[in-house]
Nucleic acid binder design. Structure first.
Lengths: 202, 202
DNA sequence: TGCCACATACCGACTGGTTAGTCTGTGAGG
DNA sequence: CCTCACAGACTAACCAGTCGGTATGTGGCA
């Protein structure tokens, strides 16, 4: 071979291999589903080979787990920030509720993977993801309960159910929201947060 | 072989083979996912062989399509019944919203398949399912718009979004609801319908 | 400065296992 | 004797993960 082969064509700053693999896997998993995506397709999309993938990741399902971890960390971080501000509780809830919508839309691929591919993870990893998710859920619920105790939110519905109600709609975004549709992410977020707050009016 | 082999052990009225196959497939698809379920497992669970399955169904994905058809027909039928009653619109919406929750919980397996396995269907079948689903969605939306025009529902949020908000939570049921939990299906349905109606208060 | 030792970061052919769908057969009923 | 309703062995394809190999870099030492 006389060319520098398949490293790079140009000198633009290429992302490191692990990130490229993760990005390619995310696209493909969201597109055709975890089981329908072969490891070969992932490495081809990332411009490397199986050797590279198994150098950085223990298994295909490790890749999926890493995607879950990334989403979970991001959302938890943002929720914590909003929840612990010193604004009044209805403001904190509204901001958190709207933010998770925007963040979800900004990472729609992650979202469709998240809710479709849970059961492709190994039992251990599933348990881990579920427990991190529970932590998130509880933080959100605490916010609602705080408002209920303060008398600014209705107590007609148990806080737990309200959380599931809202996250149902967030979850659902990846089914119907298409970038470039007639609403911006922020508009959708405002409407959904509104619906939540309106449902909670005493 | 001297025994009547593997047809039936007793003379209880056994369901016909196609239904048994569909039932077995539903359980298994909900449990481990479409791609993780082999045709061999389905036929074993139904007590027949591949010959029988391919006698009645053209392919594995035909089986899935039939499951989708069954759910869609059932829900559309029920929605039509509730929507066309002559009760006031807020009553019709409430009943329809609560009913879809109860029906979904009664068929939780169908629900988890529905929202997880869409993209395992062939392109044609997916298109067909989407169009039937759209019909359902539109009927529901019409109900909300009717109430908005009559002034009994707030117009702050576009009806479309409200529908997605509610169906997000229905969709989500298969993630968190467990039969035998501390709420009955009817209680959950009442709460979720309440949340919807409260969010729509002018 | 030159050379060796070792590690990191991959490459890609190969293996063992699995799977959807096919096809030839067969018994029962009309 | 013909058709329906299956049985079950077989095939062709695919795929996750393995493994032996290679290229490049780096530190130590003479």
């Amino acid at each position: 071979m006389t060319s520098p082969a398949n490293q790079r064509q140009d000198d633009a700053p290429t992302q490191p291999v692990p990130q490229r693999l993760l990005a390619a896997a995310t696209r493909l998993f969201a597109d055709r589903g975890y089981d329908r995506t072969s490891v070969q397709e992932i490495v081809e999309a990332a411009g490397v080979t199986k050797g590279a993938l198994y150098h950085y990741f223990g298994s295909k399902d490790d890749l999926l787990h890493e995607i879950y971890g990334r989403v979970l960390r991001l959302q938890q971080e943002r929720l914590d920030a909003f929840a612990s501000s010193d604004a009044p509780v209805e403001r904190r809830l509204r901001d958190a509720a709207a933010d998770v919508v925007v963040t979800t839309i900004d990472n729609l691929d992650d979202a469709s993977i998240f809710f479709r591919s849970m059961h492709q993870l190994s039992e251990d990893k599933q348990k881990q993801v579920r427990s991190e998710r529970r932590r998130y859920h509880e933080r959100f619920r605490a916010l609602i309960e705080e408002g209920q105790q303060a008398g600014v939110f209705s107590t007609a519905t148990p806080a737990d159910l309200v959380v599931d109600y809202h996250f149902g709609s967030v979850h659902h975004l990846s089914t119907w929201y298409r970038p470039g549709g007639r609403m911006t992410p922020q508009e959708v977020a405002d409407h959904l947060a509104d619906l939540l707050l309106r449902a909670l009016r005493p």
